[in-house]
Design a protein around this nucleic acid. Sequence first.
DNA 1: TAGATTGTTAATCGATTAACAATC
DNA 2: TAGATTGTTAATCGATTAACAATC
Lengths: 214, 214
Amino acid sequence: MRWRKISDAVVRRLPLYLRVLDELAKDENNNLISSQELGEKAGVGPALVRKDLAWFGEFGKQGVGYEIDYLRSELRRILNLDSTHKVVLVGAGSLGTALTRYNMRRFQEDESFTLELIGLFDSDPDKVGQEHEGIKVYPITELESFVRENEVKMGIITVPASDAQDVANRLVNGGVRAILNFAPVTLDLPEGVQLASADLTLELKRLAYYINEV
Amino acid sequence: MRWRKISDAVVRRLPLYLRVLDELAKDENNNLISSQELGEKAGVGPALVRKDLAWFGEFGKQGVGYEIDYLRSELRRILNLDSTHKVVLVGAGSLGTALTRYNMRRFQEDESFTLELIGLFDSDPDKVGQEHEGIKVYPITELESFVRENEVKMGIITVPASDAQDVANRLVNGGVRAILNFAPVTLDLPEGVQLASADLTLELKRLAYYINEV
DNA sequence: TAGATTGTTAATCGATTAACAATC
DNA sequence: TAGATTGTTAATCGATTAACAATC
């Protein structure tokens, strides 16, 4: 049903398109959108929009465009956003707890995405047993079995750089398929486990390059 | 002095190399590194490492490799990390204040990068006048003049999506050259202003795509 | 029907990799 | 000198754009 060779460059743009459609869907007056308009709002060329979507099916009508609600539901389906995803967050420090607080709100608002944060983990015995936004902190030693038993497929890493690879290994051994990593290290992951890097300092350092330009 | 056509694909890898070198520099025993080894640790092919670096000069010695300390200082210079960058953060909500707390610590630790957060901004009169980690919250109406007067070149946006474009415009008008945007919108920026997007939901939605794979 | 816009193929562009002479 | 590794050019690969027939 899914044909295993769609490039990540394509996949990265799908959530972007979906974001535009979600926004448009709020206004009942919008029914149709052209690849031209969708591209403009997503910052992508119209031909590329059509090509990206065509990898997954024929969602538009010639001479007409794409029906917003339909394309939206198709994208949600393609991105696996129509089922709830269980997530664990490892590292209940300042970033981890802030993210817990923030994401709990943000995700609750986002009608096109359901993430369920079911556990926090930390190696610090003082933190184990605490609760943040109603979610318990478990000892890191239980991470792998917890992930396996609850069939968690997504993990968020907010531990210090020196612990990140170890945490990643435990997550992967437990069966996690995708990791969002905030720690400033290059993680070594087995083929097939997807990684998103959220190292903000890396981004800021890149931006610094462009600052002293003419 | 800088030749204006180095691709962003290249620039994005420089902070990655620097991160590896920073790590290696901690151990006094490491003096030299080959493109092979640097590439491995950064997750990049050795030929690409050499090609990337060659855009900026000849930093290595044939048959020997790259001197870690030297390459490190050159990369810091290329990335403009040897001077301090003043930054403002707009949106003193839960994410903004968490980031303030977190980044203040994180950046203080990072010897190869000096960011100075000199002001927080918010449109909520109740928040104006508050302090977070010793940094004052100013009214958003003062953003543009503040940025101009203090010659701030970098801004971080943590306001709701509906306000982000307006904030970006004010930053740009004040003279900001680079923006780190957490709001879930595609910002429209003039040529030459650099953007880093930190929309975590976008990343998580992308990861969701890969979860139900065979 | 006439006008518009898709889906798709061919052309272009850019980025990565392979290969190797130069040289430490 | 022999071995290793750079800097760089040429070859390959992949992604984006242009163009257009199909068709709503």
